[in-house]
Design a protein around this nucleic acid. Structure first.
Length: 723
DNA sequence: TTAAGTATGCTTTTT
DNA sequence: GCATACTTAA
C-alpha cells in the first residue's frame, strides 16, 4: 500500500483515500486527473475490498472508458467484468435495456442520430404543414434538445417558455416528434439521458435499486455535464453521497450541447461537507506553455481560482507563426513535421488542432502530396456514412420492426422498382390501418399498388423474413456479410462511374472488418456472441475516436473539442484568427467568447514538448478570399512568452514526380499497370499525376493529384494513361 | 422510375 | 466549393 500511494503526490493521495462522502476534484490540465481516478478505483477494489459491481465510473468518451479498463486490468490485476464504466449515454442505454417494463419502449429500441432526426423533422414539417423557413429545423431541434437535457417534457414546456406563436409551434413539433419516436420504438441521444433520469425520478423502487448497486460513483469531466446528467447522478448518490467528481471549469467547452458549468461551480452546495481538492501541479507541459495558458484563462470571469505550475525544466517556448494564406499554413506544418520525422520522431506524437472540421481539407491535401500518413478524427462519423447507414438500416429493421425510418431507407435501396408513388400509398395504408409500415406490408394484400410494385414488394418482404429468422442463429458479422453479399452492394459501387464510390467499397470492407472485430472482442469478454440489438445500440454510440487505428503511424488531425483529455508531444494549433477562434458565431456573446477562450486553453495544454501556433493573413472561405485578423486571444498572451515569426514564406513545392523513362513512352490504352508518378488524363478532371496506386491491374484504385491541385481517388479504368 | 442536370444552402463544436 | 435536393428528360 505504501508503494501504491507513493506513486502519487499528496493531493492525488487525498483523492484516492477519501472514499466516503462527496469529493470535488478541481484538476487542471495535465495534473494527473485520469491517474487519480484509476488509482482511486484500484484503491477501492484492492484495499477497501469493494466489489467492482458496486462501482460506477462515468467517462466522457468510450475511448477513455476503454483505457481505464485496460489499465485497471493490466496494472492492478483487477477483474473488470462487473465494473460499470462508460459514457453517460452508454450507461443509460444499459439501464434502459434492463428496465423495459417501466418504459414506453422495449429493449430493442433503435437509437437515432442527427441525420435520422433531420429526416424525421422533414416529415413532421410536411405533416404539420410548417414552413421550414420560418421555423428553421436546426434551431427547433436545438431547442427541443435543450428541453430534454433540462428534463422539460412537452407537458411542462409552457411553464418554462414564454407562450407565443413561435414557442407554441416548437411545442407542437416537440410533441409530435416524441410521439413519432415512441411509435418507432426509437430514442435519440437526448432521450437516453432523459428517460433514465425520469425512470429514476418516478420509480422510487428502481432508484433504490441503483442507489444500492452503485455504492461508489465517480464522474470524470464533470464540468461538461448537463442537467439531466446531474439529476441521474444525484438520484443515485444523494443518500450515500459517496460521489467523487473530477473536472476543470477552465476546460468547459460543451455549453452549446446543454452542459451547465454551474454543475461544477455549485457542487459544494449540492452536497454536504464536500471535500475540495485542487490538483494544480502539471506534469505535462513546459513552464512557458502553462504561463501562456494562465495568461489567457485569467481573462475569464466565472471560475474557480486556480493556477497551473510545473517542476519541469524545459525552456521551450510556444512559437507563433504568421503565414500568407491557408495553403502556406498547411505547408508550414508539413515542413515542420517532416523535420520532426527526420529526427526519428514518430508521426503518432504529432497532432494538428483546429476549430472547425472544414479546416482539415487543406492539410489533407498537403499531407497527401508529401506522402505523410495522416488520420482525421471527426467530421463525418464512420457509422453515419450513407453506405454504412444503408446496411445498418437492414439490420435495424430486423431487430426493431417498428423502425419506419430504417424501413423507408431500404424499401427501394438498392433500387427494386418500388417508387415514390407506391411508397406514398403504403404510408397512407399504414395510417388507415393504424399499424407500422412493416406490419402493414406483412399482410401482403397489395390491391392499392400497381402489380409491378406489389411483386417487387413481396420479394423484399420475403427477404426480410428470411433474414429475420437468421438473426436467431447467425452471428452478427455473418449476418452483415450476408446482407452485403446478397444485396450485391460491393458490386453496385464497384461498377459505378462516380469516383466517390471507390471509397464506399473501402468503407463497406472496413465495416465488415470492424463488425468481426467487435464480435471477437465481445466473445472474449463475455463468452458469448453479441446480440444484434446490443451490437446496433453499441455502434450508434461510437464516435470517430473509437475507430482510431492506434497501430498505424500517422499524424492526427482533429478539432480542439476532440482533443480534450488527450496529450501529444508536438502540437500545432492552426487558424488562430478572429472569426475562426473565436468563431464568428460566438463573438457577439461574452459567454460564448469565454467558451472559445477555454477551447484555446484546452488546445495549448495538450502539448508536451513543442507548441506551434499559426495564423494566416488571408483565408479562402467558401468562394472568396478574405483578409483575416489574428485571434484576439493572441494579444492576451504576454509577448515575451512567445517566440514570434512573421511572414515566413516557405518555398515548398510538392516533390516533383518525374515520370520515369518507361512511362514516358506512349502508354497504350490497355496498359495494365499504373505507377506512382505516372501522368494521366481524366475526361472530367483533366491532367493529373498518380500519387498512389492501390491494387493491381488497370482497375487499381488511384490517388491522383490533378492540375488544379485537387486530390481524387479514381479507379484506373476511368483514366487514360499518357497525355 | 431512373439518371442526369440544375439549384440551393450551408459550416461551429458532438454523445 | 461541396453535397444534397429538386427538376427535367428518357
Amino acid at each position: 500500500m505504501e508503494k501504491f500511494l507513493s506513486q502519487l503526490n499528496i493531493e492525488q493521495q487525498k483523492v484516492v483515500q477519501h472514499t466516503k462522502g462527496p469529493v470535488l476534484v478541481l484538476a487542471g490540465a495535465g495534473s494527473g486527473k485520469t491517474r487519480s481516478v484509476i488509482y482511486r478505483a484500484a484503491y477501492l477494489i484492492n484495499y477497501q475490498k469493494v466489489n467492482p459491481w458496486n462501482i460506477l465510473i462515468v467517462t466522457f468518451t468510450n475511448k477513455a472508458a476503454r483505457e481505464l479498463l485496460s489499465r485497471l486490468e493490466d496494472t492492478f490485476g483487477i477483474s473488470v467484468r462487473s465494473l460499470w464504466i462508460g459514457t453517460f449515454h452508454s450507461i443509460c442505454t444499459r439501464i434502459l435495456r434492463y428496465e423495459q417494463e417501466h418504459l414506453p419502449f422495449t429493449s430493442n429500441f433503435s437509437i437515432y442520430d442527427e441525420s435520422d432526426q433531420k429526416s424525421i423533422f422533414k416529415k413532421i414539417y410536411k405533416e404539420l404543414d410548417i414552413d421550414p423557413k420560418k421555423f428553421a429545423p436546426g434551431k427547433v431541434r436545438e431547442i427541443i434538445s435543450r428541453q430534454k437535457n433540462s428534463l422539460i417534457l412537452p407537458k411542462d414546456f409552457l411553464e418554462f417558455n414564454d407562450a407565443n406563436y413561435y414557442s407554441e409551434t416548437v411545442l407542437k413539433i416537440y410533441k409530435y416528434y416524441q410521439n413519432f419516436l415512441i411509435r418507432n420504438n426509437a430514442l435519440d441521444f437526448d432521450d437516453l439521458l432523459m428517460y433514465t433520469a425520469l425512470l429514476l425520478h418516478d420509480h422510487e423502487e428502481i432508484r433504490r435499486k441503483y442507489e444500492k448497486k452503485f455504492k461508489y460513483v465517480m464522474i470524470d469531466e464533470y464540468q461538461d455535464t448537463n442537467y439531466a446528467q446531474f439529476k441521474i447522478i444525484n438520484l443515485i448518490a444523494r443518500n450515500h453521497q459517496n460521489l467523487c467528481v473530477v473536472g476543470d471549469d477552465d476546460q468547459a467547452i460543451y455549453s452549446w450541447r446543454g452542459a451547465d458549468i454551474r454543475n461544477i461551480l455549485s457542487f459544494e452546495s449540492d452536497y454536504k461537507n464536500v471535500l475540495k481538492i485542487k490538483l494544480e501541479q502539471n506534469y505535462r507541459s513546459p513552464k512557458s506553455f502553462l504561463l501562456a495558458a494562465n495568461c489567457l484563462i485569467k481573462n475569464n470571469s466565472e471560475r474557480h481560482a486556480k493556477e497551473l505550475w510545473t517542476a519541469l525544466e524545459s525552456q521551450e517556448k510556444p512559437e507563433l507563426v504568421k503565414l500568407e494564406n491557408e495553403n502556406r499554413e498547411a505547408e508550414y506544418v508539413v515542413r515542420q513535421i517532416s523535420e520532426l520525422r527526420n529526427k526519428n520522431i514518430s508521426l503518432n506524437d504529432c497532432v494538428v488542432l483546429y476549430r472547425t472540421n472544414a479546416q482539415s481539407r487543406v492539410f489533407e491535401n498537403s499531407f497527401m502530396q508529401h506522402q505523410i500518413r495522416y488520420q482525421i478524427v471527426g467530421g463525418v462519423n464512420f457509422y453515419q456514412r450513407k453506405e454504412i447507414k444503408d446496411i445498418l438500416a437492414y439490420l435495424r429493421i430486423l431487430v426493431n420492426p417498428a423502425d419506419s425510418e430504417s424501413f423507408l431507407r431500404i424499401i427501394n435501396f438498392p433500387a427494386r422498382g418500388i417508387g415514390k408513388v407506391s411508397i406514398g400509398r403504403i404510408l397512407d395504408k399504414a395510417v388507415s390501418l393504424q399499424k407500422n409500415l412493416l406490419q402493414t406490408v406483412l399482410e401482403k394484400k397489395f390491391d392499392y399498388l400497381p402489380a409491378n410494385a406489389a411483386a417487387n414488394l413481396r420479394k423484399f418482404i420475403d427477404l426480410l423474413i428470411e433474414w429475420q429468422q437468421l438473426t436467431r442463429t447467425l452471428p452478427v458479422s455473418e449476418l452483415a456479410k450476408k446482407v452485403i453479399k446478397e444485396l450485391r452492394l460491393i458490386e453496385l459501387y464497384d461498377n459505378s462511374k462516380d469516383p466517390k464510390d471507390i471509397s464506399r467499397v473501402e468503407n463497406i470492407q472496413e465495416f465488415i472488418a470492424a463488425t468481426e472485430e467487435f464480435s471477437e472482442k465481445y466473445l472474449e469478454e463475455t463468452g458469448e456472441e453479441p446480440k444484434l440489438d446490443e451490437y446496433l445500440q453499441n455502434i450508434s454510440l461510437q464516435t470517430d475516436m473509437d475507430n482510431l487505428k492506434e497501430d498505424e503511424e500517422a499524424v492526427k488531425l482533429m478539432t480542439m473539442h476532440n482533443a480534450k483529455g488527450l496529450e501529444f508531444d508536438h502540437v500545432f494549433i492552426v487558424g488562430l484568427e478572429d472569426g475562426l477562434l473565436p468563431h464568428a458565431r460566438s463573438i457577439y456573446d461574452l459567454n460564448n467568447v469565454e467558451e472559445e477562450r477555454r477551447l484555446f486553453y484546452v488546445g495549448i495544454t495538450r502539448a508536451r514538448k513543442t507548441l506551434k501556433l499559426t495564423y494566416a493573413r488571408t483565408r479562402r472561405t467558401f468562394d472568396a478570399v478574405q483578409t483575416t485578423f489574428p485571434s484576439r486571444f493572441l494579444s492576451e498572451i504576454d509577448d515575451d512568452l512567445l517566440k514570434q515569426q512573421n511572414e515566413i514564406f516557405y518555398e515548398l513545392r510538392a516533390p516533383r514526380y518525374k515520370a520515369s523513362d518507361k512511362s514516358k513512352k506512349v502508354v497504350l490504352e490497355n496498359e495494365k499497370y499504373f505507377k506512382i508518378g505516372q501522368k494521366i488524363y481524366h475526361d472530367k478532371f483533366g491532367k493529373g499525376v498518380i500519387l498512389n496506386v492501390d491494387g493491381k491491374g488497370n482497375d487499381a484504385k488511384l490517388t491522383i493529384s490533378f492540375s488544379d491541385g485537387k486530390l481524387k481517388k479514381i479507379k484506373g479504368t476511368y483514366v487514360k494513361a499518357g497525355i
